[in-house]
Simulated assay, not measured.
Amino acid sequence: MRVPRFSAWTQNLCGMQFSILGYGDIIVPGLLVAYCSRFDVWVNSPKKIYLFCCCIAYLCGMVLTFAVMLVTKMGQPALLYLVPFTLLGSALLAWRRGEMRQFWNGTTYEVLDSTREPLLPGVLSPPDL
């Protein structure tokens, strides 16, 4: 994605300079944000505290990325700042709430085998297709 540079705001739109933010910079920390949202549901957190904490940490990491980019006047790998902020923020919250073991291990899901009966009558199961 192209993000306008802060120093280019004084120029016209056609001559504006851009920085590039890769999709990996969004998707990799986004997986942790999605996990935090799911963990909130799993532990029945009333205010979605893990999701909120991880989103705030992502925002802080992105602000730091842009600040370092402004100071050094060079492109910065956003994951260098986003991953530590989101991981440390979420891990510290889990440690503080006494849920670190649950947060680290996650949930166990049972994989359904294809021999089970369909939930809706009249619906074909995968082997019958």
Results as ranks from 00 to 15, higher is better:
residue 114 S to W: 14
residue 6 F to S: 05
residue 89 G to E: 03
residue 72 T to D: 08
residue 86 T to Q: 01
residue 118 P to K: 10
residue 129 L to C: 14
residue 20 I to N: 04
residue 14 C to M: 15
residue 49 I to L: 07
residue 4 P to H: 10
residue 97 R to D: 13
residue 31 L to G: 12
residue 102 Q to I: 04
residue 90 S to N: 01
residue 9 W to R: 08
residue 103 F to T: 00
residue 104 W to F: 15
residue 128 D to V: 14
residue 13 L to P: 00
residue 17 Q to C: 08
residue 65 T to H: 07
residue 121 P to L: 08
residue 28 V to K: 06
residue 10 T to W: 12
residue 20 I to A: 13
residue 89 G to I: 05
residue 37 S to L: 03
residue 90 S to E: 04
residue 123 V to A: 07
residue 72 T to M: 14
residue 30 G to N: 09
residue 112 L to W: 05
residue 111 V to H: 10
residue 80 L to R: 00
residue 59 L to E: 05
residue 55 C to L: 14
residue 72 T to Q: 11
residue 27 I to C: 01
residue 47 K to M: 11
residue 61 G to P: 06
residue 122 G to H: 04
residue 32 L to E: 00
residue 122 G to V: 03
residue 83 V to D: 10
residue 27 I to V: 12
residue 69 M to V: 07
residue 76 Q to T: 01
residue 6 F to P: 08
residue 126 P to E: 08
residue 32 L to D: 01
residue 108 T to H: 06
residue 29 P to I: 00
residue 101 R to S: 14
residue 11 Q to V: 10
residue 64 L to S: 10
residue 32 L to A: 13
residue 89 G to W: 09
residue 78 A to T: 01
residue 53 C to F: 01
residue 29 P to T: 01
residue 16 M to I: 12
residue 55 C to G: 02
residue 122 G to D: 05
residue 120 L to H: 11
residue 58 Y to W: 14
residue 72 T to S: 13
residue 30 G to S: 09
residue 114 S to V: 11
residue 23 Y to E: 06
residue 1 M to E: 02
residue 90 S to Y: 05
residue 32 L to Y: 06
residue 18 F to V: 06
residue 31 L to H: 07
residue 65 T to A: 04
residue 39 F to A: 05
residue 47 K to N: 15
residue 62 M to Y: 06
residue 99 E to M: 02
residue 31 L to Y: 02
residue 126 P to M: 10
residue 8 A to P: 04
residue 102 Q to Y: 00
residue 82 L to C: 08
residue 104 W to I: 13
residue 99 E to P: 02
residue 89 G to D: 09
residue 104 W to M: 15
